[in-house]
Design a protein around this nucleic acid. Structure first.
Lengths: 156, 156
DNA sequence: TAATTGAGTTTCAAAATGCAACTCTTTTCG
DNA sequence: CGAAAAGAGTTGCATTTTGAAACTCAATTA
């Protein structure tokens, strides 16, 4: 049984991190988005210990971020694939990748290039917007924590 | 000295996770965005062990996600505040919060309410868009990993 | 000036991680 | 078809990280 530390938190960021907030899970999801599906391939691409990979994949399956599918011809051979819930981490991962490209550049490496398949043009930086599509920064928002009445003036 | 596991990875997601990818760091940054600045306040709001908090704050300062400021009148009293780099995690955190609200709902709890300070209207779901503001899903993009020539057809 | 608060260290136990070797199937290839 | 190789894990053990509580020591507050 996998221990869940923040499972019961009233903070949805905490609950999200409980499911994918360790060192490996998001990287596994990322590789899955790039097309990796097999245990050995995850293992080799990440250089993760096999038992840990096993644990993380089980955890992701348990939390319905991925599903495990038997693709053996006459026996068992598995593929791990993203569910709708897992695919919905796309935004988070792109935002994180862009942050990494901006703030932790790797000497001599270009930031990864991600493009619209149809138009061939690069993806725009992910932004928080209001309903008219106007970009909002941390200073432009108010957070209303529903149980307390605290209106928290988000700032740095 | 803090060990960095993915520091040298050519993957910017890995490098990003190296800086903020543990169980606590993003939650610390989140609280900082809501206005928390003092060691004890982080400690109480998170219920984190004091030595771990200490380690995480140092790590965040070392990576320039936060800065430590002496605010003592005649001696040392500290505040931890976000840097520009830390503030730029806003998008990632909002995306993660929205994912958590969608996929790990807490029984009897409303998703957190975040609004535009000026208009009072709720923040829109964060999306990956092309340059015209057209939303893109994982299936709509191509990833070009620059060192190999592999064009990876991102999928689930 | 004494008591309290802030901001940590230190110590020690418990849990998580990493590594290598070992299993047991399922494919593949001659 | 049978042997060898690949896939998908387990198991055991050493190393690291965490967590909890007690202990410092300076700065505020009463």
């Amino acid at each position: 049984m996998v221990k869940k530390r923040f499972e019961d938190s009233t903070c949805s960021v905490a609950r999200a991190l409980d499911e994918v907030g360790d060192w490996w899970s998001l990287r596994i999801v990322l590789l899955a988005m790039y097309g990796t599906r097999r245990y050995v391939d995850f293992q080799q691409q990440l250089g993760i210990a096999r038992n840990i990979l096993c644990d993380r994949l089980n955890r992701l399956v348990e939390n319905e971020v991925m599903r495990k599918e038997n693709v053996g011809e006459h026996g068992c051979r598995f593929e791990y694939r993203l569910t709708e819930k897992g695919r919905d981490l796309f935004t988070v991962l792109v935002a994180l990748r862009q942050w990494g490209d901006r703030w932790t550049p790797y000497p001599g490496q270009e930031p990864m290039d991600m493009r619209d398949k149809r138009t061939g043009r690069p993806v725009a930086p992910v932004k928080v917007c209001d309903q008219d599509g106007q970009a909002l920064s941390i200073r432009d928002v108010l957070v209303n924590q529903d149980d307390t009445d605290a209106v928290c003036d988000a700032e740095d």
